[in-house]
Design a protein around this nucleic acid. Structure first.
Lengths: 154, 154
DNA sequence: CAACCAATGTTGGTGCTGCCAACGTAACAT
DNA sequence: ATGTTACGTTGGCAGCACCAACATTGGTTG
């Protein structure tokens, strides 16, 4: 009885239990939740902008290359995202007197409050995503994912 | 001492310990590993093709809409990916006599052996990705991710 | 039966993310 | 002084996810 609907109520085993598949699905859900949140509170800002603002707020002024390194965003994408942030007066770029090829990027007070708003969005996304897990399980998940990511840093 | 290099040897806390961030990084790693593998054994096939072949091999012939439902791929993307698979004679499309708007998609013997090759790539990707984890931890991770994904199916 | 609505495949387009190549300028190394 | 590296910028590409519109076909309802 091919093509009957109840044949399709689960994903293929070959795929379902594979970490790479699960991670891609988790990422899809996570992205959907985040972008929905960004769209609501959206001044058109997205993940890249959030990462950059967070890095700036946490570490203070930095060059664009350093921002790229710490946020995992390519130099060229950093340039584009910063331009959009600058247009909204959320960051400032000024030339480094010590090194004329370098821009020193600073977060503005407006950027800090925007970051706070985005933080709320991102925090809520964590809860939405991890709703089915207990606190201990959430911690476990973070631990495991961290371990996966750690040894590749250098 | 702003802008000193050792200021940047870690990612911002605000981001680092957040599941959405970790998942996005894990996905990035996973994608990189997979696409590297696909490129080596690549006849230009990518994730979509693998998912579709796997679904067909596991469940037998199906309509495109059903394939989309089970693989989580949009109808329009299913169409495109199947066209590419068909050009390589890895699948066949034929009209459903019972329902003229429907295509019945079948995997060919060539498709099955291609799937086997891709399976090897995907299996290796699991090992590469989860290298830092013990078997128990891998199982734990799968369990946690599955739990996150489950309740949103309906 | 006729009129409407739902499903199906197709086309074409969008957005986000992650990359890479090339360029000019500036700093550094030898 | 020369060559090499770092930096920011521009422009492009690929993969994944998603959406809108359309013609065709099937089913449903008045």
């Amino acid at each position: 009885m091919p093509l009957s609907p109840h044949q399709f109520d689960r994903t293929p085993d070959r795929i379902t239990n594979r970490p790479t598949w699960l991670i891609s699905r988790a990422f899809a859900r996570s992205s959907a939740i985040l972008s929905a949140g960004f769209e609501q509170h959206g001044d058109g800002l997205r993940g890249y902008h959030y990462r950059l603002l967070a890095a700036l707020e946490q570490w203070g002024p930095a060059s664009q290359t350093d921002l790229g390194r710490t946020t995992g965003i390519d130099r060229s994408d950093v340039t584009a995202a910063l331009t959009e942030l600058e247009a909204r007066h959320l960051i400032e770029r000024r030339a480094d007197p010590q090194n004329k090829r370098r821009n020193i990027v600073t977060i503005t007070p407006g950027g800090i409050s925007e970051l706070a708003a985005l933080d709320a969005v991102v925090n809520k996304a964590q809860d939405d995503l991890l709703a089915p897990l207990t606190q201990a399980q959430r911690h476990q998940l973070v631990e495991l994912l961290t371990r996966i990511l750690e040894p590749t840093d250098p």
